[in-house]
């Protein structure tokens, strides 16, 4: 890198590069990210190819951990990945479907001077942690919780039913969070779409639904894609929500990883699973990046 910089400076055809301080200011962040983000990931990648047995490294290069991901315990780990993908897909789709109308109404139906306030209010719970949000849903869903009280009170059900501790509860907790995230990204995209596009479409005879379908929706896809990507990444990697709300019947990928660390201290297996999870995220990134580029054309 230093060599490249030196030659391009010697060549002298480039625009004058920022000198001194301005050049140096970038390096602390780059070095920090390299040392505490890239290096640890590289370490994990290396560890993932070692095999440990009872705390002792027995093999320095093997694909055993990756094989175990598929084979171990009748594919319980593979199933965790499948579960994670299913939950994440459902959460992403549901969150988009719920958030889009919220963002749309905020951007186009609410008077401009109330929009900001309403948006800030709407996403206020976004700023609390997964732990507290998930605990709050536990309160709502518990056997003595507000929903069971309401349903028994109305006579819809005779006895309180357990609503926590299953996939539905995990999805609910996730959707709650990601609806807020997507509302933010979609709203900020919608308000950037020039009003004259919608005016022009209406002028040319489009009904409100046609304007939405042919103009607003396609133009807001970048906002949806950014939000969907963030949702995917954060959802598939979260340990807390499924741990608090999901119960013990099924395992999601982060829980599977945490198990390797907690019970058996199998850092190699934990690393391998982490790499697999990251691989899935990278594929999702490439997918959405291509989508975004297509939209720009």
């Amino acid at each position: 890198m230093a060599l490249v910089t030196a030659t391009s400076a010697a060549g002298g055809i480039r625009a004058p590069r920022p000198a001194g301080l301005k050049r140096l200011a970038l390096y602390p962040a780059l070095i920090f990210t390299a040392a505490f983000f890239v290096l640890p990931l590289a370490v994990m990648l290396c560890i993932s190819f070692t095999l440990r047995d009872k705390g002792v490294t027995v093999d320095w290069f093997t694909f055993a951990n990756y094989r175990a991901f598929v084979e171990r315990g009748d594919g319980v780990l593979l199933q965790a990945m499948v579960n994670s993908l299913e939950v994440t897909a459902v959460v992403t789709v549901l969150s988009i479907l719920i958030a889009y109308p919220i963002a749309y109404i905020l951007a186009y139906r609410v008077p401009a001077r109330w929009q900001r306030l309403l948006l800030v209010l709407m996403v206020l719970p976004f700023w609390t942690s997964y732990v507290i949000r998930s605990y709050s849903w536990l309160l709502v869903l518990s056997e003595n919780g507000i929903i069971n009280r309401l349903l028994t009170g109305l006579g819809v059900i005779a006895e309180p039913i357990g609503m926590g501790n299953n996939r539905g509860a995990t999805i609910l907790g996730f959707v709650h969070f990601f609806v807020m995230l997507l509302t933010l990204t979609i709203y900020s995209n919608l308000v950037q779409i020039k009003e004259s596009y919608r005016r022009a479409a209406a002028d040319l005879g489009a009904s409100p639904w046609q304007v939405l379908l042919h103009v607003t929706l396609p133009l807001s896809l970048p906002g949806v894609a950014v939000g969907a990507f963030l949702t995917f990444v954060l959802c598939i990697g979260d340990y807390i929500t499924p741990q608090i709300l999901g119960g013990s019947k099924e395992l999601l990928m982060p829980q599977a990883i945490m198990r390797q660390v907690g019970r058996t201290a199998d850092f190699s297996m934990a690393s391998a699973l982490s790499m697999i999870l990251m691989g899935v995220v990278i594929i999702a990134f490439l997918f959405s990046a291509r989508r975004l580029r297509m939209d720009r054309l």
Binding site: A29, L30, T33, F36, F37, L39, P40, L41, V43, M44, I47, F229, L230, V233, L234, I236, G237, D238, Y239, P254, I257, M258, V261, F267, A270, S271, S274, L277, M278, V281, F285
Partner: peptide, 20 residues
């Protein structure tokens, strides 16, 4: 490069630091 950590799960970041 600087934005990359946003796409990695906190869990994986924590484990990477732990192991390292």
């Amino acid at each position: 490069f600087l934005m990359a950590p946003i796409s990695v799960s906190y869990l994986i970041i924590a484990l990477g630091l732990l192991f390292t």
